[in-house]
Design a protein around this nucleic acid. Structure first.
Lengths: 367, 367
DNA sequence: CTTTGGCACTCTCGACCCGAGAGTGCCAAC
DNA sequence: GTTGGCACTCTCGGGTCGAGAGTGCCAAAG
C-alpha cells in the first residue's frame, strides 16, 4: 500500500505482448503523431503522414488489433485513435528511438552552467529552467541531501551584540546554522565563558564526541557531555532532525506554464489538482524508493502513478548525487502525451551533469 | 519611465470626485455584490439584496451617473454593472469598512507560527500559506534582506578533507557561506598556514578591516591586505555582491490555485501571463520604491500597474523588516474583484507579525 | 424636484437543429 | 493478405429562436 509498491515505473511492459512488425510500426506512428498534434489520429492521415506503404484499410485492421490489446483507445466511435497508458509504456519500453542528447545541446547546457554563480541554489534553479525549456513540460529539481543527516563539524561564533552562531557542517557537506540565545547558554552553565575562547572549547568537544552521529545518536550522547556542550548538542540534534525531515523541501519548479499551454489542460480543472500536488511536493517522497532501487531515468505514465491527481500526467525522473550519501531528484512532469524521446535523454544528461557538479570538489554546498 | 513613476498605488482617488450619499451607497453595494458573486449586478438584485429603501429605477439613475463618472462599466448593453478600476480605487480609498483582523484570527495565526520550526524559511513559507488561505488569492513573500549588503563578521573553518569554509554574517544578520578551494588558498600565499590557526588569523584581519563595508568598498580594500586575507576578501566581496543582486530572489508563493479557481481566469489564457510574471518575480523590484517611500499597506488595482500582464489583477502589498536595514515584501495577488476589506487587514497584520519575528532577538536568521 | 412604475428595446445564453467532415467497421473482390 | 467501397456514427460549427435579465427613457405621482 506504500507508494513504492503501487508505482509500476520500474516494471517492463508486462505479460508478453507479442506484436507483429506492422503493429509495432503503426503503434509507433500513432504515438508520434499524437504527441505532436494532440489530435486523435486516423488511418488515412497516418499513411499519408508517415508514408507507410499500405492502404488506410490495412492500417485500420492493425489499429483494431492494437485496440483489442489495450494499447490504443477510442475517444468515441468515428474519432481517431489515441494511445493508452499501456501504449505509451510499450512505446517507451521498446519502440522509441532514443538518442543521446546531441553534442550541440550538451555544450549549450554546459555553457549555461558555466555562466552562472557557483552556488547550488543557482544550479538547481538553472537545471529546472533548462529541463522545462528543453521538454516543454514542468520541471522539478530537489537539492541533494543525505537521507540520514550525520554530524560532520561544528564551529561556534561570537557575534557580540548579535548573539552567538552555531555553524554545523553535515557529513554530506551541506551546511546549516542557527543562532544561539546567549541567555539560554548562560543558563545552561552559569559559570562558563561564552566568549569566543569558551565557544571554541565547546566546538572542539562536539567535534570530538559527535563525529558521524545521526540525530538520535546525538540526542543520546548529549547528556553525557559537559553542561554547555550538552546544551549545544541538543540544538545540533534538532538541526539534524530538521535536515532529516526536510529531504524533499526546497524544490525548484519551472515551466508550469508549459503544462498550462497543453490543450488537455486548457480548461484548468485538471491543472488545479496537479498544481496542488506539485506544491505540496510530497509526491516526490514516493518516488525516492523507486528511483534509488535502480538508478537511471524512470518513466511513470498516467495511471501507473498511485496518486489520483496525476492520472493525466507522466513523470520522467532520475536521482542524482553521491550514491548512498546525498540524494537529489530531478525530472519533468507533463501530459502523458509527452515527447519521451526528448525528455528521457535530457533528464539523463542533467542528472549526470548535476552529479558531476555536486561531486566536484570546489563550490559552495549550500546557500 | 521607471516602474516607480508609473505605479499609482500611492495616489489618492484623484481629481475631486464628489459623490452624493446615494451614489456612495450604490457604488459600495455594487462592489460588494460583484466581489462575492462575480456576476454583473443589476438594479433589481441590488435593491433586493441590500435592502436599499428605494426602487430599482432610482438605483438605475445612480448607476448611470456613476458610469458617467467612470466608476462603473457595462460589459454590454443590458448586462448589469461592474466596477471599473477607478471604482475599486474609490471603494478602497473611502467606501470600504475596513476592520482590523479580529482577535480570534490573530490568535490562530500566532498559534500557527508558534507551531513551526524556528527558521526564517519556515516563517516565510507559513506566511505565504496563511495569506493565501485567508484571502483566497495568490500570495508572495520575500525574505528580509538589506538593500545594500554590508560585512559583519567572518569565520573560517578548517573542514580537513572537505576543504575550508568561509561563514560570513552580514550586518543585517543574514548568514552566507562558501567553500574555499584549498588549492587556491595555497596559491594565494604559498607560505601561509591554512590550518585552523592560520585561518583564525585571517578571519581576525577581515573582522578588523572590513567591518561595515559594502561590496565595492570591500573590493577596494582587499588589495591592501596580506595576500591570504586579500584572497578571502575578494570572495567576501563576491558574496556581498551576490546578496545585493539577490534582494528579490527566493520568493515564496502560495495559493496560485486560488486564482485559478476564480471564474475570470478559468480559461487560463490570462493566468498564463500572470504565472510568467510571478515566476520571474522582478515585478516585485518595481514595488520596492513605492512600498518603502511610505510604509503600510499599498493597493495597486488593475491598470494602475505598469506591467501589462497585471492589468486584470490587484496587488495588496506591504513592506516589513527593520526600517533602513533589512527589507522584505509580502502581499497577495488576486483578481481586481478582490475582497479588499479582508485582504488589507490580513496583509497589514502579517507584515507586523513578521516584523516582530524578524526583530525578536532569538531565532535563526537564515536557512 | 425627486421618485416611481411602465414600457420598449437590447443583448446574452442555452436549446435545438442541421449539414459537413472525418473516421470506423465490414465485406466482397483482387 | 490487401484493398476499395460503402453504410454508419459521431463531433463540430453555424444558424435560429425564445426566455430572461437589464437598461434607458418618460410621464405621472409625491
Amino acid at each position: 500500500m506504500t507508494g513504492e509498491t503501487r508505482l509500476r515505473g520500474e516494471r517492463t511492459a508486462g505479460p508478453a505482448v507479442e506484436l507483429s512488425e506492422r503493429q509495432r510500426t503503426v503503434l509507433r506512428a500513432v504515438v508520434e503523431d499524437y504527441v505532436t498534434s494532440a489530435q486523435p489520429v486516423g488511418s488515412k492521415t497516418l499513411v499519408r503522414r508517415f508514408g507507410l506503404g499500405v492502404s488506410p484499410a490495412t492500417v485500420r485492421g492493425a489499429m483494431a488489433e492494437l485496440e483489442a490489446l489495450g494499447l490504443l483507445t477510442h475517444p468515441h466511435t468515428s474519432a481517431g485513435r489515441v494511445p493508452s497508458d499501456l501504449g505509451y509504456r510499450l512505446y517507451v519500453e521498446s519502440l522509441m528511438r532514443e538518442a543521446a542528447l546531441d553534442r550541440a545541446d550538451q555544450l549549450t547546457i554546459r555553457h549555461q552552467f558555466a555562466q552562472v554563480q557557483l552556488t547550488t541554489n543557482e544550479w538547481l534553479r538553472l537545471a529546472a529552467s533548462i529541463l522545462a525549456a528543453n521538454t516543454q513540460s514542468a520541471s522539478v529539481v530537489t537539492p541533494a541531501r543525505a537521507r540520514r543527516a550525520r554530524f560532520g563539524h561544528a564551529q561556534l561564533v561570537d557575534l557580540a551584540d548579535q548573539g552567538r552562531l552555531a555553524v554545523v557542517v553535515l557529513a554530506d557537506g551541506n551546511v546549516v546554522q542557527r543562532r544561539l540565545d546567549p541567555a539560554l547558554l548562560e543558563r545552561a552553565d552559569p559559570g562558563a565563558s561564552i566568549e569566543q575562547a569558551g565557544l571554541d572549547e565547546v566546538a572542539a568537544t562536539l567535534n570530538r564526541e559527535l563525529s558521524g552521529l545521526s540525530a538520535p545518536q546525538t540526542r543520546r550522547r548529549a547528556p553525557q557531555l559537559p553542561p554547555l556542550a550538552a546544551h549545544v548538542a541538543e540544538i545540533v540534534a534538532q538541526l539534524l532532525e530538521e535536515a532529516d525531515s526536510a529531504v524533499i523541501e526546497d524544490v525548484f519548479t519551472d515551466g508550469i506554464v508549459n503544462v498550462l499551454e497543453q490543450p488537455e489542460f486548457a480548461e484548468g480543472a485538471k491543472l488545479r489538482g496537479i498544481l496542488e500536488v506539485l506544491r505540496r511536493s510530497d509526491f516526490l517522497q514516493q518516488l525516492v524508493p523507486v528511483l534509488t532501487r535502480r538508478g537511471g531515468v524512470h518513466v511513470i505514465i498516467g495511471h501507473e502513478n498511485a496518486n489520483d491527481a496525476m492520472h493525466d500526467v507522466s513523470l520522467v525522473f532520475a536521482p542524482y548525487g553521491a550514491p548512498g550519501r546525498a540524494l537529489g531528484l530531478l525530472g519533468v512532469l507533463g501530459p502523458t502525451r509527452m515527447p519521451y524521446p526528448r525528455a528521457i535523454p535530457t533528464v539523463r544528461y542533467l542528472a549526470a551533469l548535476m552529479n558531476e557538479l555536486i561531486n566536484s570538489h570546489y563550490g559552495e554546498t549550500h546557500d
